[in-house]
Structures are given as C-alpha cells and as structure tokens.
Design a protein around this nucleic acid. Structure first.
Lengths: 300, 300
DNA sequence: ATGTAGACTTCGGTCGACC
DNA sequence: AGGTCGACCGAAGTCTACA
C-alpha cells in the first residue's frame, strides 16, 4: 500500500486547497508536513476528518491510493459478475478451482458466491460446498447485515428454497432484508443504490415462489413492489414494471401484463444492454407457465 | 464522531468473523482488544487494511460509524440536487442565503454548485459570485480531477460558454474530462458509475453547441457517444440514444431521430421517473429548432 | 476464541524557531 | 503559504501472563 500522506497531499494540490484549509483543528502545521511527506502515519479518526475537508469519499481515496485499482476482493467480485453475465462459465469454473481453498476470508466469501452462481446455472438442486455453507450460516445467524450481505442474499434464495435442513423460510429472509436496507436510504438520496437492489430481490423471490408453485405467497408480493421512499432510477423502474407485469400474467390482467412485457422487450431492442436481466427468457417462461396456471385454476 | 474501534467490532461481529481473521498480520491480539474497546485509536494505514479484511468499503464504514448518516457535504449536495430536481427553487434560494458565506471549503464549493443551478434556471447570462469563481478557477487550473470535479463540471459548461474572460474553450474542458474519467473505469466494472456521467456531460455539451449555433462542433460530437469501454446501464443507454437522436434531428435522418425520441417518451410514460432528464422539454425545443436549422441550411 | 493488565518500545503529535 | 529541525510528551503498539 502507498503511504497515505503523500496521496492526501496530491489530492489537496489537485483541489487547490491550502494546508490550513485541510488540517486546521485536526493536526498541527508542522506535523501536517511530516504526514504529507510520508514520514509519519496518522490516527484513523483524524484521517477521516481530513478526507471530509478534502471533499473526497474514503472509498475514492482508497482507490486512488491503490494506484487507481479496486481492493482485491472487489476486483474478484467484479470479475466474477462479469464472467457470469457474459456466460463465460468455463472461465468462471477455472477461477473457482484456483481460489476455493484460499485462507483469506473475503476470498472464501467471494468463492462461495461464485459457486452459487455456477450451480444456479447448471443444477436445480444445489450442492452445499464448504464456502456456500459458510455463507449461508452467516446470513442465517446474523440479524444485522451490511451492504455485502444485502447484495449477496438474492442469489442464495434458490438454495434456501431447496434445502429444508436450514429450517428457515424465505419470509424470514425477506423480513431481514427489509429491516436492513432502510439504514442505507437517506432523506434525499440513495447513496449506495440499495433501492434497485431491493426490487431485484423481490423479483428473485417472485420467480422462486412461482417455480415452487407457492402461488399464495407470489400473490402477496404485489405490494412489495410499490414501496414508498425508494429512489428508483431507470434500472429500478424497469425492473419494477417487469415484475409487476409478471404478477399480472398470473393473478391480474393477463393481457396488460403481456403487453407491458412486450413493450419492455421492444424498447430494449433499441439498445445494446448486455448486462441486464434476461428479459426475453423471463417473458417466454412466464407467459407459458402463467397460461398453464390459469388453466388449472380455471381463471378467465 | 464515534470511536472507530467499537464500530469495527460491531461490524466484525455482524460478519461472524474472529479477531484472528481480521487482525492477523496487522496488529497484535492484545492491542486489537484495546482498539475494539475504544481505548486506543489506530494508524490509518492499518485501519484500511482491517476494512479490507472485513469486506466493507471505507465509505460504508464511515456511514455506519456516523450513525448511518452521510458526511455533511454529501448531505448538502444530495439535498440541493433534490431541491433542484423537484423545482423547489425558493427553498434552494433560501438555503443558499444561509450557507454562501460559510468558512468551510466544502460548503463553499457546494454553495457555488447551488448558485449555478439556480442561475441556470433563471438567467441566460450567469452572474459570477465569489463561490462560482472559486469553482471555475479551480477547474480551469488543475489538469487532474477527482470524482467531485468530474461530476460538477457539467453544470459549469453554460458559464464557460457565456464568459469569454475565462479564455478557455469547451473543447479543452472536454479533453480534460476525457483524460480523467478513464482512471475511474476498471477492467470489469465501473465502480463509481462514471460512464453515465460522461454521456450526460456530452449531452450538456451538445445542447450548448446547438444553443450557441456552433453546428460544426455539434456535428463532430456524434462519435463521442459511441465510446468503447463504457459500462452503460439503462440510465446511460437511454441518455445515449436520446442524444444520438437529437443529433439525427439536425444532421442525420430527421424522421429516425424524431421516432426514437417519441419511443423514449412513450416508454417513459409507463413509469413515474421523476428524477430524470426533462425529456419532453428537450424533445419540444429540439424538434422545432432543428427544423429551423434544416430550413436555413436548405437540408432536405 | 476473547478480555484484561503491566512493562516496555516506537512513533504520532505539538511547540517554537528558522528558512 | 510551505518545508524543516530539535526537544519534548503522550498515545500507539507489542509481549507475556492470567483469566
């Protein structure tokens, strides 16, 4: 890791700020020089105060100080998501073989994540590897979650649904994510973009209920998508409409749902959105399945 | 500010990690306890290493440690953006009166930002207040930018265009933003969501060129929207198509541009996207203006 | 696996002076 | 305004031992 002081100095100069503007009431003038020159480190509390004065987020600082690279665990996660979204399963599988025995906790977590992605593509019943079990136990035991847990739990839903031995139902997980995501919303903004995350979570749950023919639970999900206080951008709004349309297919106005899905697919064809929900597949499966459902229920 | 150690402990417990997993090779076991109990602070370099082991970003840590609140400057910025996007100009103006004389640098910067937003709504020629001048000089003097500068420069374009005394042209600014945004893209991800920012910047520049009847420059912008390596989600893709369509109105296939804009507006009507580009206004103005332009140029 | 305590060393941090 | 030096103090940090 580079020395923090010299990076702070670099940023201070970029921002055109004086030492006085940045360090007043935090450290003395003479120590500021020793810190900026890299001679001394500094207490972390003072470090965070200095970043505030600079107008730079701690994460951006870390990124710059790390020569414009992400921390290792985030790099791995980005790569895994990229490989999965581009359907490079072979590469992903090779990656996993190399990393699954690591002693670094964060790599273990990311490996568990990668395993779930891989098996969710290949199997219907999920094997419980050591890393996946670690992930699961962690999520089930702790009621408080950070962003890492909130963003990860979505992909574990199919596992929870197929492994009764965990003795937990999806409703409990849903309650837990709802209790936790709120902490990350502020009055005027959604700085960690957690609103979209929540909508996508509900989408996964809806799909799971439909797959397991738990129609009553699926029916009850409708209101979840209309939560107040969410900050939805285009990504979130489109996901929301997509899942509401799927709901209509089964339990509401079938034609309305179908038309909405077609509209979204038509619109998407204008673009090259590669990293997005596989809307076409969802459409195909859900239209056919909802028809069957309506037939058995003699709806319409 | 809360003591960092106890917050670290809280997060470590949430994550179900042992002290050994988090602190090995960073600090001794006994000191780890004194740190977690809040008796001692810690060197900032070690602090960042610990966060990596925890799997939490420094910014999220700061947010949690600050009782789930954003740093003050970010809170103010979020509020200002919210007030502007909801057209609460009166409240925004009152806010500005209270803060423009602050001695805190970050508040001065945010005040300058708020002033520009306000005047860009009210005037065509921008008054140069002390804080706006400070912002401008800073952006013009420094070749290296951080995210704060990259995200802010967009709103300064109209000022640069109307104040010849700055003696800088928009092309220089465009070069500068292009040199700097690349640092924030990684191989597999766009962790700071800078791709969308760049597309929006080009949109502002395109509008400005068209407003100042600099059609040659506007014509040349087309390729900018097709940059490789960008990570565009729905937000970015839609902005991109929107500006490309505006370009078509003037210099390409008028009907194609018009149809694309109508498609986007139609699609938008399915949603409640409040915080988005004012697409309807752009459509109205650009369709009329491009017709006039084509008429004078005798195109078509 | 965590918490606490004493003895000890290193280095974060201030002050004042000078460039 | 930024940079450096020496003297000084208190806090960061380790190690060992005992819970």
């Amino acid at each position: 890791m580079n020395k923090l002081g010299p990076t702070i100095k670099k940023i201070r100069i970029i921002k055109g700020l004086s030492q006085k503007q940045v360090y007043t009431n935090i450290i003395s003038r003479s120590f500021a020089n020793r810190f900026e020159s890299g001679t001394n480190d500094i207490q972390s509390e003072k470090f965070l105060m200095i970043l505030d004065n600079l107008g730079i987020s701690p994460s951006e600082f870390q990124y710059i100080n790390n020569n414009y690279e992400l921390p290792m665990a985030e790099q791995l996660l980005a790569k895994i998501n990229y490989l999965y979204e581009t359907h490079a399963f072979k590469t992903l599988s090779n990656w996993l073989k190399q990393h699954k025995e690591s002693h670094n906790v964060q790599i273990q977590i990311v490996s568990g994540y990668a395993e779930v992605l891989l098996s969710s593509y290949s199997y219907h019943r999920f094997p419980l590897s050591k890393n996946i079990q670690m992930l699961m136990l962690h999520l089930l035991n702790e009621k408080s979650w950070t962003l890492q847990e909130i963003r990860m739990v979505k992909i574990l839903i199919p596992i929870i649904a197929t492994h009764e031995e965990f003795n937990i139902n999806i409703e409990t997980i849903t309650n837990r994510i709802e209790e936790n995501y709120k902490h990350y919303l502020t009055k005027y903004a959604d700085p960690f973009q957690i609103s979209n995350e929540l909508i996508n979570y509900y989408g996964v749950v809806l799909q799971n209920y439909l797959n397991t023919k738990n129609y009553q639970a699926a029916y009850g999900l409708r209101n979840k998508f209309n939560l107040d206080g969410l900050f939805l951008d285009w990504n979130g709004q489109i996901s929301k409409q997509l899942w509401l349309a799927v709901w209509e297919l089964y339990f509401g106005n079938y034609e309305l749902g179908r038309d909405t899905l077609i509209k979204i697919i038509d619109f998407k064809s204008m673009f090259q959105i590669s990293f997005s929900l596989n809307i076409d597949a969802i459409f195909k499966i859900r239209v056919a399945d909802s028809k069957a459902y309506r037939f058995t229920k003699k709806i319409k």
